Simulated scan of single mutants.
Amino acid sequence: MKTSEVVTAVIAALLGGGGLAFIQAVFSGVSSLKQGARAHERESVQDLARARDDADKRAASAEADRDYWRRIAGGYAYQLTRAGVDPTPADPVPPSQR
């Protein structure tokens, strides 16, 4: 037998004896693994986006509360100064300039 005849006989035996089903199973398994990984990555990205949005909402809420209390403190400081009370310390220095 020639080499080409042997190769042809081997291929025919594999494909005739369930080799085709095996090859299809391998390819379908690989494609399902890829699709599963992609789905998992999409879920992970969506989870990260939700976590980022929640963190942004908490930061915005904290900033709004901070600004509210600063306005209240500024109003009280203005009222006390207007009533003749001297602030303590008279000339505050911000932490960035210390």
Rank of each mutant, 00 (worst) to 15 (best):
K2H: 13
T3A: 14
E5A: 04
V6W: 06
V6G: 02
T8H: 06
A12L: 01
A13L: 14
G17A: 07
G17Q: 01
G18K: 05
G18I: 00
G19C: 00
G19T: 11
L20W: 08
L20A: 09
A21V: 10
F22R: 00
F22L: 15
I23N: 08
I23W: 04
Q24G: 01
Q24R: 12
A25S: 13
F27K: 07
V30N: 03
S31F: 05
S32L: 13
K34C: 10
Q35M: 09
Q35A: 13
G36F: 03
A37F: 12
H40S: 12
E41Q: 14
R42C: 00
R42D: 00
R42E: 03
S44N: 12
S44C: 12
V45D: 02
D47P: 03
A49H: 11
A51N: 11
A51E: 13
A51M: 15
A51G: 09
D54N: 13
K57H: 07
K57R: 14
K57D: 08
R58Y: 12
A59W: 08
A59Q: 08
A62I: 12
A62H: 13
E63Y: 07
E63R: 13
E63G: 09
A64L: 14
A64P: 02
D65M: 12
R66H: 09
Y68R: 12
Y68Q: 09
W69H: 10
W69L: 15
W69S: 02
R70V: 07
R70F: 15
R71N: 09
R71E: 11
R71I: 05
I72D: 02
A73M: 14
G74L: 07
G74H: 06
G74W: 05
G75H: 04
A77I: 00
A77L: 15
A77S: 06
Y78S: 10
L80P: 07
G84V: 04
G84D: 07
V85T: 02
V85G: 04
D86S: 05
D86W: 06
D86H: 06
T88I: 15
A90S: 11
D91Y: 14
P92N: 02
V93P: 03
P95I: 01
P95H: 05
S96P: 01
Q97P: 06
Q97N: 12
R98A: 13
